[in-house]
Design a binder for these strands. Structure first.
Length: 217
DNA sequence: AACTCGGGGCA
DNA sequence: TGCCCAGAGTT
């Protein structure tokens, strides 16, 4: 098992820097129930939370329980969510997951990772968003941005996102999970980009092993 | 491991 | 106007 190679006292320093540089909380998924959060998170794949919030809010004016979605024709649901990407797949996932909830989980969202992962359209990231945000469980959501940025900052030295997930869950104080998740995403898009990262304008480059290595050449 | 879905963001 | 993607399923 690989261990994070940042000292724990450095974590607080790093988080303080993020909090200072991103005074507004990161864009986050809105929801009024664990079921709504599950649906919003399924919708959020490869899509910004801002777009998803708009569609989800509109959707849940009309429907709000698994029963409401399980009976929908796929085409009908597609028309309501077609302003976001991958909407045909997502409509299919939402209807299937709603049916599964009714048939196998008494209409409730399961609180175990193993069960969540059985649902249609629910992978590692989506399961962790629901576990952490709706059920207060130990699960740090790791998407591509979180994985890249936390790797560069040496919050995790793992080569596999599954391991990064475990390491961040242990390393990051829980009260920062939600904010840090979105800070890392925002940072990954604006500054710490996959290609041509803008290290010159990065507020935490002085703490960044990736940058140090870059300067050394 | 590579491919597919897709509208929006951004150069 | 073209390139890339705030994932997950399928082959």
């Amino acid at each position: 098992m690989s261990k994070p190679n940042i000292k724990e006292e450095k974590v607080e320093e790093l988080i303080a820097l993020f909090a200072e540089h991103y005074p507004e909380p990161g864009t986050s998924l809105d929801s009024n129930s664990d079921f709504e959060l599950l649906i919003a998170t399924i919708l959020s794949a490869q899509t910004t939370d801002l777009q998803v919030n708009k569609v989800t809010a509109e959707l849940f004016k009309e429907y709000n329980k698994p029963e409401d979605f399980a009976g929908l024709a796929q085409k009908e649901l597609e028309e309501k969510i077609n302003s976001i990407g991958l909407y045909r797949n997502k409509a299919k996932y939402i209807i299937k997951t709603s049916k599964m909830l009714l048939e196998d989980y008494q209409g409730k969202v399961p609180q175990e990772r193993k069960e969540l992962l059985k649902l249609a359209g629910v992978g590692r990231k989506t399961a962790n968003v629901v576990l952490a945000n709706a059920f207060n469980k130990a699960a740090f959501p790791v998407d591509t941005h979180v994985f890249r940025v936390s790797s560069r900052l040496a919050l995790s030295s793992a080569k596999n996102p599954k391991v990064t997930e475990k390491e961040l869950t242990e390393l990051i104080p829980k009260k920062y999970w939600i904010d840090l998740h979105h800070w890392l995403i925002d940072h990954g898009r604006a500054i710490c980009k996959a290609q041509n990262p803008d290290c010159e304008n990065c507020f935490c480059s002085h703490l960044c092993p990736y940058y140090k290595n870059l300067v050394k050449g």
